Computed example of a mutant assay.
Amino acid sequence: MHKIEILGFVAATLTTMAFVPQVFKAWKERSTTDISLVMYLVMLFGVILWMIYGIYHGSLPITIANAFTAILVFIMVVLKLKYK
């Protein structure tokens, strides 16, 4: 594996994991009042497009990171709708 691929995986891990505390907090507190549904819907659409881009270019870091991010963002959308 090339060093640039390792860099891609590290970057992907950090940016994806940035969503974990928000998801955990919303789930734990059962509150999403300060969360923008529109922002998360736009983000979800964007990461799905990035995932497709990663698949097209055969980039594992881009594909995996955006797949996991899409799951986390989707969970936030569900929590937002559930705790509305």
Rank of each mutant, 00 (worst) to 15 (best):
A70Q: 03
S36T: 09
M76K: 10
F74E: 01
L49A: 15
Y83H: 11
G54D: 06
M43H: 09
Q22V: 07
V73T: 11
V20L: 13
L7D: 00
T69Y: 04
I6A: 10
K80P: 03
V73M: 09
E29G: 06
E29N: 12
F19T: 12
G58C: 09
F19P: 03
L7Y: 04
P21R: 00
T15H: 03
F45A: 15
N66A: 05
I52R: 09
W50H: 11
K28F: 02
N66P: 13
N66S: 08
F74K: 03
A65W: 06
H57M: 14
P21L: 04
Y83K: 01
M51A: 12
I64F: 14
D34F: 06
W27H: 09
F9G: 06
F24I: 15
L7E: 00
I62P: 04
A26C: 12
I48V: 14
I52Q: 07
H57P: 07
G54E: 05
Y53H: 15
I6P: 07
S31M: 08
Q22R: 05
G58M: 08
A26Y: 06
F68P: 08
W50Q: 00
D34T: 08
M1S: 12
A70W: 06
A12R: 05
F9V: 01
L81D: 05
L14I: 10
V10F: 08
T63Y: 02
P21H: 08
L7W: 08
F45L: 15
K80D: 00
V23R: 02
H2G: 13
P61H: 13
S36Q: 15
I55M: 13
I75F: 11
I6M: 11
T32W: 02
Y53E: 10
A65G: 13
T16I: 01
V73W: 06
V78A: 12
S36Y: 06
G58S: 07
A12M: 01
Y53I: 05
F45Y: 09
M1E: 13
G54W: 03
I75K: 10
P61L: 04
K82G: 07
Y40I: 15
D34Y: 02
M39Q: 11
G8F: 02
L37K: 12
I6E: 09
V47M: 05
K28A: 10
V10I: 15
A70M: 08
K80N: 00
T63F: 12
S59H: 04
V77N: 07
M43L: 14
I62K: 01
T13E: 04
I48D: 11
V73S: 04
M39L: 12
M39R: 05
M76V: 03
M76I: 14
T13G: 09
D34K: 03
I35Y: 07
L44E: 11
P21I: 05
F19V: 11
V47F: 00
V38R: 12
A18G: 07
H57K: 13
Y83L: 01
L60N: 13
H2V: 09
F19R: 01
K84W: 07
